[in-house]
Design a protein around this nucleic acid. Structure first.
Lengths: 210, 210
DNA sequence: GTCTATAGAGGGATAGAC
DNA sequence: GTCTATCCCTCTATAGAC
C-alpha cells in the first residue's frame, strides 16, 4: 500500500466521477492523481484492473461511512430518509456515480463485471440487514423476499443517480414521491390487529399457489 | 431521411449496446452501419449529435412498440408483469441498455443530457398514464404523487438493466421479489370498505402536516 | 452523397535509464 | 519505484477527388 497506489485509486475515482467511463484513461487518471502515466501499468497491469480495484476501494469506504446510519434505521420511512441523505451526499462526493460508470463500462467489458457486482453487493448486504430488521414485525415480513428486495432497492438507487445527472428536478420529484409513499406505507403497517389477521390469512391463501 | 442516416442511427444503437459508451466512436459506429466513417460527420456533425439523435430514434420506436401493452394494464401487478416482459425483451433487443449507456455518458458530457432526459421522458409519460389509471380507485390514489412515482419507476428500471449486466441471477431475484410484492400489495388494496375508510381518514390526518 | 487520404491529438503498453 | 521516451494504434475532423 504505497502512497502512489492510493493516489492512483483516488485519481481513478475522481476521473470516473468527472469524466465518466468514456473519458477515463491511464493518462487522465495519472493526471488526476498527480503521478506518472507509466505507473498505472506498473502498479495495476492494465487500466481495467485499476478501475476494478478503485471500485472496491471506493465502495468499501463509502459503505463503512454509512454503516452507523444504517444501523439506527428501524422503519421503512427512516430507510428512505437515509436513502435521500445518501443520494445528496454521494452526489457531491460522487461515489455512487462512480459505481454507475463502472456498471455502464462492465456491460461491454466482462473484466469489470465481477468488480462492479462485488461493489454493489456491499451495498446490498447493508440494505438487506436493514430490511430484515425493519420488516421483522410487519404482517408482510415473513413472506417477503428480503434479499431480493435489497437487490431491487440497490439497483434502483443506481438508476436514480443516473437520472439525477440528466434531470435534477425530475429526480428530486421522484425522490420526494418515494418519501411520501414511505410515510403512507407506515400507515398501512399500523392497521389494527383485526386487519393484520385478515391480511395474514389472505397472504397464506395467496402464497400456497406459488 | 436517406437510407444512410437510418443505417447510422441503427448502427449507433447497436454499437452502444455491444461496446458501451466507452467503445463507441465514429469508426465503430460506421463499421456497424456498414458505412464510411466520414459520413458520420457529414450527416450529424459530431459523434455526440449522432448519439443524441440515435437515442431519440431508439426510444421513440421502443415506446411505440409497448404502447399497446401499457394500454391494457389495469393493476399494479399487471404493470409489474409488463415490466418483467419489457426487461426480458429489451435486454435481448438492447434498447434500454442503450439508454443506460447514454445516461452514463451524459453525466460527463452535458451535450448528451437533454437527449437522455427526453428519451427517459417518453417512458415516464407512458408509466405516468398507466399509474394514474391503476391508482384511480385506490385509497392511496388521491394523495400519491403519480408523476413523481412514474419518474421513480423509470429511473429504477435503468438501474435494473445495469445490474442485470453484471449479475443476472441477482437481477432475476430482485425482479421476482418485486413481482411478489406487487401481488401482496394487491391484497392490501382489496381490504374491506371499513379498513379503506380508516386508511383514508389516517391519510387525511397525516397529510395535513406536509 | 460518398469515397480516400491525412492531419493532429490521445490512447495502451513497454523498454530502459536512474 | 519512478521517470523519459517511444511504438503503434485509434480517435475526431477535415480536405478534396469523384
Amino acid at each position: 500500500m504505497t502512497d502512489t497506489r492510493t493516489r492512483l485509486l483516488d485519481g481513478a475515482l475522481a476521473t470516473l466521477r468527472d469524466k465518466g467511463i468514456a473519458g477515463t484513461s491511464a493518462r487522465t487518471i495519472a493526471a488526476a492523481a498527480g503521478v506518472n502515466q507509466a505507473l498505472v501499468f506498473y502498479h495495476f497491469g492494465t487500466v481495467d484492473e485499476l478501475l476494478a480495484a478503485a471500485c472496491a476501494h471506493g465502495a468499501t469506504a463509502r459503505v463503512a461511512a454509512y454503516a452507523d446510519r444504517f444501523a439506527t434505521v428501524t422503519s421503512l420511512a427512516e430507510l428512505l430518509q437515509v436513502g435521500v441523505e445518501l443520494h445528496e451526499e454521494e452526489r457531491a462526493e460522487g461515489n455512487v456515480v462512480v459505481l454507475a460508470q463502472i456498471l455502464a463500462g462492465a456491460q461491454a467489458e466482462p473484466k469489470l463485471a465481477p468488480a462492479a457486482a462485488a461493489a454493489l453487493n456491499l451495498w446490498i448486504a447493508e440494505i438487506e440487514t436493514v430490511l430484515h430488521r425493519v420488516l421483522a414485525d410487519s404482517p408482510l415480513g415473513p413472506v417477503l423476499d428480503v434479499p431480493g428486495l435489497a437487490r431491487s432497492v440497490s439497483a434502483a438507487f443506481i438508476g436514480f443517480e443516473l437520472y439525477d445527472g440528466v434531470d435534477p428536478d425530475g429526480a428530486a420529484r421522484a425522490m420526494s414521491a418515494l418519501a411520501q409513499l414511505g410515510a403512507l406505507l407506515t400507515l398501512v403497517e399500523d392497521l389494527g390487529p383485526t386487519t393484520r389477521r385478515l391480511l395474514r390469512s389472505r397472504i397464506r391463501k395467496a402464497t400456497t399457489g406459488s
